[in-house]
Amino acid sequence: MAGLHKSFGGVRAVEDVSFEVAAGEMLALIGPNGAGKSTCFNMLNGQIRPDGGSIRLAGHDITGQKPRRVARQGVGRTFQITATFASMTVRENVQVALLAHHRRIWRFLRPAGGEFRAEAEALLERLDLLPQAERAAGILAYGDLKRLELAVALAGAPRLLLMDEPTAGMAPAERVALMRLARTLATGTGLAILFTEHDMDVVFGSADRILVLNRGVLIAAGNADTIRADPGVREVYLGSGVTTGGH
């Protein structure tokens, strides 16, 4: 995977931001609210068209393509507010993602219950969701829902995974487990992971590299120690550490 480069001009929300994610890397994007993190994410998976700049995935230009095209090129994502198919069972959620990935949607007569069943169950096993396979997604507990969303995103066999506040609202123990799983995926399959997060324990504990965005501009990049020590980052984002457990 060649990496990713992008830059935007003109948009006030995000201005001239460029970065790369390498295969197997976990990159964190942090910054104050309204800094443009979500805008970046939405441009990366095609929900917003950038006004300028380019996005390249493994050498292919995917700038301005629609979300479903971007998804087919190998970009998976999870949302800040989880988005799953509430009326369908956990297994069906993953099955429909697999059907979409293998372009088997436009079949009108063959029962879908048996399609990609084994693959779906293997994926659920991996995310510890197999016992819940026959429950409707709409009644899952919050943490389970987050993992289901991840399973659905992974069903598309992405090369790049975007996770928007993956651990928000999770209990601390669950947070650690989820990020450990993400790490396994990254090192095991060469998946590149880009994530935003407000929990500094998660960010400093799991990211290989950290980007700090403020008012649409990248103000710092580096590993945990560099970022922690950066006076600019402390001023606009980290603060004195009273409310984050101190750093």
Binding site: G31, P32, N33, E165, A168, G169, H198, M200, E235, V236, Y237, L238, G239, S240, G241, V242, T243, T244
Partner: peptide, 14 residues
């Protein structure tokens, strides 16, 4: 009140 807010904003909230 602190959910989803940057640490520096959370301090203002205090």
């Amino acid at each position: 009140p602190s959910e989803g807010l940057a640490p520096v904003i959370v301090e203002q909230m205090v």
